[in-house]
Amino acid sequence: MKRLFPYPLLSLALTLLWLLLANSLSLGNLLMGGLLGWAIPRVCRGLWFTDVRPRHPLLLAKLLLRVTGDMLWANVQVAALVLGPVRRLNPVFVEVPVDIRQEMGLTLLMSIITLTPGTVSAELSEDGRRVLVHTLDEDDPDALIESIKTRYEKPLMEIFPCSPS
């Protein structure tokens, strides 16, 4: 099993992707999806640098729900800010120190920052320890840093722990 599917999650995702693209659950499509899920990871084996294994699937689901909720709320807020008087906006560049080291977790953190309330992650420092965040309207940058760290970074650090290597 391990030799047949070196990356089980990737195989599963590829099969699901094929089924969604074909938009059917017929036997032929299931076989084709399975074949792709088996072949693509094998062909690409040399290209992968780290094998990502998320822990705590429940926590991951909770985080996804939280991000979805924040995103909906953020959209309403940003819509109100955009339509309101522009002069009252207080844009800030905030430097957020990050502790998460795992690459996938860091990528997800930056994506989440961009997708939620009035914030865009602008750049990651060379050593990967600070993220520059631009916010559309924020009075208290420290509160923003705090909320990013507790709401998103902490669960992500548990889901993607540092690999021992």
Partner: peptide, 11 residues
């Protein structure tokens, strides 16, 4: 520009 970036990426 940096403020304009907020509109499209979210809405």
């Amino acid at each position: 520009f940096f403020m304009r970036l907020h509109g499209p990426t979210k809405a």
